[in-house]
Design a protein around this nucleic acid. Structure first.
Lengths: 125, 125
DNA sequence: CCGGATCCTTTGGGATACTG
DNA sequence: CAGTATCCCAAAGGATCCGG
């Protein structure tokens, strides 16, 4: 999947940090693993709409970056568990800061959008 | 430019927040405006490689979302200044959390990548 | 000086079907 | 169950040229 770009929130203080965390799924996956290890299908369920291909790609990239571990048990039927590493868990801290911002300012944002649309509405002829 | 997707850092705690901040340029633009208003070309210079089209699109989206203001002075030659709003400035807080994470853990991340590549190196034939 | 207009490339992500 | 393998698309972003 190459090195996906990253929100500068994680990259602006030095060389680019090619962590895959500003993409569509990584933060959600971290949240799903917050309470403990989960299996492939246990991740797929809450991440409504993610396809197995995309989930696999995301998990592989996160494993490569040391954010989580993949443990395959040699059983039938096969069982694989994904778990956060301390590094992956540490991401919850900046993620919380983002959530806090969202909680506090989402209203202002919506208002700004609304008044912008009002000001740029096409006048009826 | 429609409503671009957003890192879940800003969206996971409720309805999706379509703020344009996890994209390639928004956070960088906020940093450029941190010390005060800047003109179009003053933004273009530090954001090496950004094309006028993309810069314009980003600025327009941020203006629409209330993150910055655009002030055109009726002079010759024309002069336009962009400045952060309080809402835009408030984003510096979660951005700092991301930077802090980066400073603290970038080393671990690079190590993880390196050992992953070592473990997955193709053995010479 | 500030950007609008066009055209083009890249790529993250989705749909679907199939397998050890 | 836990993925692979293909094919496909939308959309962000870049290149270049042009206009007020």
């Amino acid at each position: 999947m190459a090195e996906p770009l990253n929100p500068d929130m994680f990259a602006d203080c030095g060389p680019a940090t090619p962590v895959r965390v500003g993409d569509k799924w990584t933060a959600k996956i971290i949240r799903c693993l917050e309470q403990g290890p989960r299996r492939f299908t246990e991740l797929q369920a809450p991440l409504r709409g993610i396809t197995p291909k995309v989930l696999t790609e995301s998990l592989r990239a996160m494993e490569r970056d040391g954010l989580l571990t993949r443990t395959a048990y040699d059983e039938i039927p096969p069982r694989v568990e994904y778990a956060l590493t301390p590094l992956g868990r540490s991401l919850l801290v900046p993620m919380a800061a983002g959530c806090e911002w969202s909680r506090r300012h989402l209203g202002e944002l919506i208002d700004a959008r609304e008044s912008w649309h009002a000001a740029h509405a096409v006048p009826a002829p």
